[in-house]
Design a protein around this nucleic acid. Sequence first.
DNA 1: GTCTTTTTGTCTTGAATTTAACAAGCCATT
DNA 2: AATGGCTTGTTAAATTCAAGACAAAAAGAC
Lengths: 211, 211
Amino acid sequence: MKTGEISAAVIRRLPRYYRYLGELLNRGVVRISSKELSDRMGVTASQIRQDLNNFGGFGQQGYGYNVEYLYSEIGKILGLDQKNMMIIVGAGRLGQAIANYSDFEKRGFLIRALFDIDPEVVGTSVHGIPVFHMSEMEKFVKDNQIYIAAIAIPKEAAPTVANELVKMGVKAIWNFAPTDLALPREVAQENVHLTESLMRLSYKLKAKEEE
Amino acid sequence: MKTGEISAAVIRRLPRYYRYLGELLNRGVVRISSKELSDRMGVTASQIRQDLNNFGGFGQQGYGYNVEYLYSEIGKILGLDQKNMMIIVGAGRLGQAIANYSDFEKRGFLIRALFDIDPEVVGTSVHGIPVFHMSEMEKFVKDNQIYIAAIAIPKEAAPTVANELVKMGVKAIWNFAPTDLALPREVAQENVHLTESLMRLSYKLKAKEEE
DNA sequence: GTCTTTTTGTCTTGAATTTAACAAGCCATT
DNA sequence: AATGGCTTGTTAAATTCAAGACAAAAAGAC
């Protein structure tokens, strides 16, 4: 299970496999073939097999894949077999929405605190998670070994805050601000650019209309 | 400017070009070359030129691209030159967060109503946008020519609601529920799967740690 | 226990995407 | 107005990615 030179396209698909396998597991399905999975997911069986074989052989000829085992293995690949402590910077509506989304917790992502500068929200709590003032962030990050931070603040402040977070020891940034962050290469980054997503939808709408 | 057989990879990048050009425009930059843009954006100049040439020649040899013109043209390609009426189904934290995000409005996406079944929120308003009961959705969609709907409800209800929306006349679905929707091919669809995004971040974090 | 069917892992082929290269054309300067 | 320097649009090469094919291996039937 060597990582490193796995293509981005494969990584993009892995969580979806994981989700489907989780559903199968809940339904009590014990085994599944790449063919059957490919029919459900609308991809080719070949692609599934090739994607998985980037990380090792998880199946057996004549049998297919054991759902529980494969689910667990993909979970390990994605780092879901360990607890990940997180914070959310920005306790506006978006930050609060993220804090409320209990799916993350189920996958081992534990949101430990939110941070904001607005006195209206500092001192309150969301979904049982405390909202602190940003001035307390550095101490919190260091004391609690926080490696993942979600950024849900206006785009003007995002680059500065992101760099500060990295200096504090954060290793992964989940960026919701509509801007690109110039982070050191050793820091993981994943953007959620909602406006761009909506624009793509708009394009698709237009393209379908023109048919 | 023919659309139709443009690859998904190109569409994925277009909104980002649009965002950068918007920033340049705000800063008063009049012209830019593909080389300069590529340096800022971390892609190759060749890719920028080829992406744009899918839609037509917007530049001039020896000069580059006029920022305002190119910005406007990409906007047209993405369908941002017209107003798009939207609704949000689900007025929980996520639905409310989307409703509050005024960037969409700036791009011509006008959120006209939210819908929910929770009596706690029905009758209230978010960011000046009314929250109605789901039972009023059909009439509203038809009366107001709503073509785009965001779905921010639990995954169990999402597929049913999505299909109902399509029957009502909705042509594009922006899906925030962590499930895949089986929609007719003539309906545009764009998923925002936050849990999958977070898993990808987790993978990247793990991969960087292992270096 | 043997034979057939199933299904993986991998190899090969083909397609799509990205990068590189370059002629043609425009700008700017003298 | 002619020349040199840029920069595009486009063609060609290289790379990456996806699909197809198939031998090897296990399961299941008889």
